[in-house]
């Protein structure tokens, strides 16, 4: 099922949560809406679900306009941020709710409901917890019940609002991989909201980066990371050093004088896109002193203070670190090898 969002605008009082947003989610893909809080990503998800009415624009599911359709008829599975499990029902009844709520004609037999619920509970590895109440489950287990409950109605589209937001780091990583596997198995068109770029990168086929009610860029995690279309995306995705400088005759000038003269550009350099040398190396390089070194990582993290007094974060391989014999207080020459100017 393809999801298409066309020119959606949504205001809350004077605040514009979404400003003429358009987006397409190809059938069978898993898309992340990524952005800082207040960027409108949850609002967009709730509008796709039908939980919120847009002031303008349309939501199309497989080319059919759903804007005026009743919530119940959309066939959308929704996983809430805080799970919203029915607290007075056990796990089985939570998952069975959607099937039991069907009108008499389409409601499955009791035996079939039982069978389908247990099939889902096995899928989320919770079959032995079927008679527990939500308050007796851990956060990760609740999340999986919420997912099983949403899948029970055989939705054409699955929407997840900060699915891992309130879990601790370890469980988060585990559930993340698990969601990806589940999606590869079921191939339901899915959209999930997150403010965690690592999460979006790891799980999603496509990422839509949002800021202040706009979608800034849509693309594969690779494209968004390596070819950010604007300064916001570059700043938001991955670690990055921000310089003020400009290109002069094909070479990059980052020093203070360039930053002050005229209108400097914003120059973005990832921590691993530097070359460190003991002697000056070409016109792009600048001088810096080593402030701090953290070698207890896959890449050695070096914090530098540039000649104009700005902090620079550099990641270098252990081999380079040893060859350079880096020490605190040492003076070093830094050359950006890859950068982006906006």
């Amino acid at each position: 099922m393809k999801i298409e969002v066309r020119n959606i605008t949504k205001r809350f009082g004077t605040f514009t949560a979404l400003d003429n947003v358009s987006m397409e989610v190809p059938s069978g893909t898993l898309v992340a809406l990524l952005g800082p809080s207040g960027s409108g990503k949850t609002t967009l998800l709730r509008i796709i679900a039908g939980l919120e009415q847009a002031d303008a624009g349309n939501v199309l599911l497989d080319e059919v306009d759903c804007t005026q359709r009743a919530l119940r008829e959309r066939g959308v599975g929704f996983v809430f941020q805080h799970y919203a499990l029915f607290r007075h029902m056990n796990v089985f009844n939570n998952v069975a709710f959607g099937l039991k709520a069907r009108p008499r004609g389409t409601r499955p037999e009791k035996v079939e409901i039982h069978e389908r619920v247990f099939r889902l509970l096995r899928l989320v590895q919770l079959d032995q917890f079927h008679d527990r109440y939500p308050s007796q489950l851990s956060g990760g287990q609740r999340q999986r019940v919420a997912l099983a409950r949403a899948l029970a109605i055989e939705p054409r589209v699955l929407l997840l609002d900060e699915p891992f937001g309130s879990l601790d780091a370890q469980v988060r990583k585990e559930l993340r991989r698990w969601l990806r596997r589940l999606h590869d198995e079921l191939h339901i068109t899915s959209v999930f909201v997150t403010h965690d770029q690592e999460e979006a990168m790891e799980v999603a086929d496509n990422v839509a980066v949002m800021d202040a009610g706009h979608i800034e860029q849509t693309g594969t995690p690779e494209a968004v990371y390596h070819h950010p279309s604007n300064a916001f995306v570059h700043k938001f995705i991955g670690d990055v050093n921000l310089f003020r400088g400009r290109m002069v005759n094909g070479s990059l000038r980052l020093d203070q004088k360039e930053a002050e003269s005229g209108r400097p550009n914003e120059v973005f350099v990832r921590p691993h896109s530097f070359r460190l040398t003991q002697a000056p190396d070409g016109p792009d390089c600048f001088q810096a002193t080593v402030e701090h070194i953290n070698p207890a990582r896959p890449l050695v993290k070096v914090e530098l203070l540039s000649e104009w007094g700005g902090a620079v974060q550099v990641d270098i391989p252990h081999q380079t670190y040893q060859e350079l014999q880096l020490e605190r207080g040492m003076t070093i020459y830094v050359t950006p090898t890859q950068f982006k100017v906006f």
Partner: peptide, 21 residues
């Protein structure tokens, strides 16, 4: 209103949502 929203998303009518949730 989370639980009510969840119930409606799962296809329950307003009346059913009130009585069961």
């Amino acid at each position: 209103a989370d639980e009510e929203e969840a119930a409606v998303m799962l296809g329950a009518s307003g009346w059913r949502t009130f009585w069961t949730i």
